[in-house]
Design a protein around this nucleic acid. Structure first.
Lengths: 341, 341
DNA sequence: CGCATCCGTGTAATCGATTCCACGCGGTGC
DNA sequence: GCACCGCGTGGAATCGATTACACGGATGCG
């Protein structure tokens, strides 16, 4: 592959001049410029990003470590992050942690070794020493969706409390009183927060959330299935199951169907994180929808601000409830966005 | 960030010795080795992958350019590719083309600039000059899922012909005679091949595939919706709609539902590419399932063989039919894998 | 005892870019 | 006529690693 030296030789100038033309530095004569450009075209020369990064100490690359690519929510997040980054002249390298802390660490380490300019993370756990060290060590970093308390890093996320209140209002209005939740891992903020929001909303209606109605999942379909089976085996099974993410809702649907029960007649179902497929499931699933695209864009903006020396801002956007048929018929009620943040 | 020089200074040796320890080169004394290791630990030193790549001319990174991350099929493919690559000590950088040739080119160019060791591509179109040039220029390359005819690059894909024959047998057995297809872009191999396989299978039953029953889609949900509306507006609408990918099937489902029609009673539906959600749609969708994980692993194997100087092999794996309820009831028939390749 | 060998180590070249500094040249101002 | 300025240019240092080559000391063998 042709290097800058070859171009310089072909154009009859020094490498310094070639470099100046490439970075359109003003003080180059028109003559030299045209000769260099011609040589570049003739040789099909493309600058070596590796060499350039070594010299300039910047890669114009962002790392994004997400918990699970197979989850459509994160896929959409990744897409919007890449799009926003590209618009600002950055590339994105995605690391998929599969909800496994050691894999998350592997990706963080690899990205750091590659000297990415900044890191976007949706942590799988409470925070590995590696990540804490990176944050303190000055690596530009922003948390997205999930975060780690006590670490001084901007957070871009959505607040589902209002939407969860709307959901509980909807469920209560339909006459449901025994409500259960499939929680995510307690080590994740989204895992514990969604339970808290649910419990608080229930409290407003004087409805308790007994321990037996809190199932421990891990954001994967299989755990949704397992927890749902546990719920259905209770002497007094819940009337509603609220899954803290869409994959666990899928597992719950599996488990309910396997018992020959129907949604919403036998059990109602709701989920956190809306996805296009929920429109066509049997029945369509009521869900709390996050403004995923906005989240991705805001996260990139914050991270790039941090990288380029501007003060980054934490952002919290409201989620909203999308009512469908999985909790029971109630055609005209379509509670949305009751409050803004 | 600490560099190799800092480590050398701290350990009281030269950078050469540090490098030797890091790459566990045999001729280093135990004494020097322990001192270097101690210094590495004390400084939290991590080698700079950028500098290393510049010197060794290899990045231990693979590029993967896929047509659409939001399509669960490609997401799963990406996941298995990353997993297989990691097992072999490679990282993967994913580029999402969104089915847009110019975006595909952007990613190919960026990846080439980063001097990735090899490229895995599922081309969005018939092949841009850029990609052809890269292939001829000696960049290790492997096509996966889709390919470009006439280019000397190994192809890893699945053959859906047997599964499509099984599908047609299933449909014919249910009494359907007017069968339509929502095709993908003709510029993609999967776009044209699936139509051909469908037509050939129909021919075995003496059923024609009229032009009016071939809708032109672009592998996105919206096109599935549009084409389906066209089909339903025909004086003699088809009894079956076969979507050449899962997103267009989603769009078709949307369109059918919007008309107040039911699947399979009013129109039957089948799709290429099976996904977990198809189990829970209303009704569950009959689909041709590709061995996605295998495909990803085989593609990485072929590419790494090519990179490391071993002869790479093209691979073709059979797809299989998964019968569900979207084409009509026929409980005991579950045709699968009638033939192997 | 002398010479060849081997082992551990350091010096320095190298990868492909960017960029500081110095140089030559023509024009301007006094 | 001289000093100075600014512009276009090239030489060379530099980023952080790897690695060919040289060197010195210890060991082995005749």
């Amino acid at each position: 592959m042709a290097s800058i030296k070859d171009v310089a030789a072909a154009a009859g100038v020094s490498v310094a001049t070639v470099s100046r033309v490439l970075n359109d530095h003003p003080s180059v004569s028109d003559d030299a410029r045209t000769r260099v450009l011609a040589a570049v075209a003739a040789l099909g020369y493309r600058p070596n990003a590796v060499a350039r990064s070594l010299r300039t100490d910047q890669t114009r690359t962002l790392g994004l470590v997400i918990s699970d690519v197979l989850n459509p929510y994160f896929t959409e997040l990744a897409r919007s992050v890449e799009e926003a980054a590209r618009a600002l002249g950055y590339s994105v390298i995605i690391g998929n942690a599969d909800e496994r802390p050691e894999l998350q660490d592997h990706h963080v380490r690899t990205l750091l070794d590659r000297r990415i300019d900044g890191l976007l993370v949706s942590p799988t756990d409470g925070g590995s020493p590696l990540m804490l060290e990176a944050a303190r060590g000055g690596t530009p970093m922003v948390f997205v969706d999930r975060w780690i308390p006590g670490v001084d890093v901007p957070v871009v996320r959505s607040d589902g409390r209002a939407a969860v209140r709307d959901l509980v209002a909807h469920l209560h209005g339909l006459g449901h009183r025994r409500l259960a939740i499939i929680a995510g891992p307690a080590a994740t903020t989204t895992g514990s927060e969604r339970v808290r929001a649910f419990r608080e909303a229930l409290a407003e209606y004087g409805v308790p959330l007994p321990e037996a109605y809190i199932g421990q999942g891990d954001f994967q379909a299989e755990s949704g299935r397992r927890v749902t089976e546990g719920f259905l085996d209770l002497p007094e099974p819940p009337e509603v199951i609220f899954a803290a993410d869409n994959l666990m809702a899928l597992g719950a649907l599996d488990a309910v169907r396997a018992r020959g029960l129907r949604v919403p007649d036998d059990v109602a179902l709701a989920a956190f994180d809306d996805i296009p497929w929920f429109v066509h499931t049997d029945p369509p699933v009521t869900a709390v929808a996050q403004p995923t695209g906005e989240l991705g864009r805001a996260a990139v903006r914050a991270l790039v601000d941090r990288i380029e020396g501007r003060p980054p801002q934490s952002v919290t956007l409201p989620a909203r409830l999308v009512v469908r048929r999985s909790c029971g018929e109630n055609p005209d009620q379509n509670v949305q966005n009751r409050s803004q943040s």
